[in-house]
Design a protein around this nucleic acid. Sequence first.
DNA 1: GTTAGCATGTAAGGAGTTACATGATTTT
DNA 2: AAAATCATGTAACTCCTTACATGCTAAC
Lengths: 206, 206
Amino acid sequence: MSRRADLLEFAVLGLLHESPMHGYELRKRLNAALGAFRALSYGTLYPCLKSLSGRGLISAAQDGAETGPSARARIVYELTATGKEHFGDLVSRADATAYDDEGFGVRMAFFARTESEVRMRILEGRRSRLQDRLDLIHAASLAHRERMDSWTAALERHGEESTRREVRWLTELIDAERHTPRGSRPGPLTDPHHPAYTPPPNPTKE
Amino acid sequence: MSRRADLLEFAVLGLLHESPMHGYELRKRLNAALGAFRALSYGTLYPCLKSLSGRGLISAAQDGAETGPSARARIVYELTATGKEHFGDLVSRADATAYDDEGFGVRMAFFARTESEVRMRILEGRRSRLQDRLDLIHAASLAHRERMDSWTAALERHGEESTRREVRWLTELIDAERHTPRGSRPGPLTDPHHPAYTPPPNPTKE
DNA sequence: GTTAGCATGTAAGGAGTTACATGATTTT
DNA sequence: AAAATCATGTAACTCCTTACATGCTAAC
């Protein structure tokens, strides 16, 4: 039932699949890379990590003194075998949550680990969802066309135009995917054998 | 503190400013016109109406038998004098909630009732917010450029392009507003003396 | 006559932000 | 030395969806 929570768990598992990380870093990545979690708070993330840890999907390990002279109380989270399996299950699913505004971005962010067939279903599902929205916009604008000031009209036109652009973009992606039907990974994917946790020598700010 | 709830109240007052309505109709308008409340449920709307009614901002009146032979249990809500005043206060404010993704659309939907000066501040605030976001996107893409697959890259480019387009759109609106500096209402605004409640002879479907 | 839409609500529960609480480390 | 950032959490609270409960009206 819980959609947003599942989404966060999915994203966390996906990011930890690339490399182990501690909570703070995880939050930064979540906020930056995925547009969905623009202002994810610790009050959401840490309980989520605790839950995942409790279910054995990730392991929590104190960061030892390898980094420097003094050991900070960092907790580095790592995907367990069970966690990898679970993420594999999730990533092969293409349910309705993969099509909506929040879900789609997150799913696409992990397309490199998604099978081509599933990718196609998600891309097409998203496109059809947007086309439904265009129909709604069109119907609505017909309904109250006369009593509409220019501001509302401009707002509606911009919304329609944006949606139309996303549909075109999706169509391009779908066509490209269709011409390379094998489960090819078009970009440099991070190494599946994640090279342990690399402590940042000069930490990236914000 | 409560942002989303204030937003809903604002939208309800704004819509009732145009003409009295009952809850069901209100929800349809909220879902259609304003993009923000895509799936507003009755569980949110009715308590909100009750609260507004309790505070004397709107009045709730049973819809009499004028409509047809049998009286349905419709409750028509109408803006009170206090409610109009309150909406006037809200619409003249340009706080941070007017700039974010959910807030901006709702605020702009009632620009026809907003003073030119406030409109400008909101448009410029929104644009500056989006420019901040562009900076963030740019910084993030620089940070993890090498370890990025083509899907993530495509997603990021699309997000950037969309944001850039919205900035351009806002700039056009701002320029247009600047060239007509008086508090002009560019479009046909609905009559301030709302012509009572017109029961739909042929009800619009969904 | 039965489905679909109109119309109004309540109860429960989950999700996630805000605010609080704390302390180490790095930069200025 | 002070300020900013890194880092981890908890508690309370708000918002909002889901599911439930009910009944009327129009269309097929």
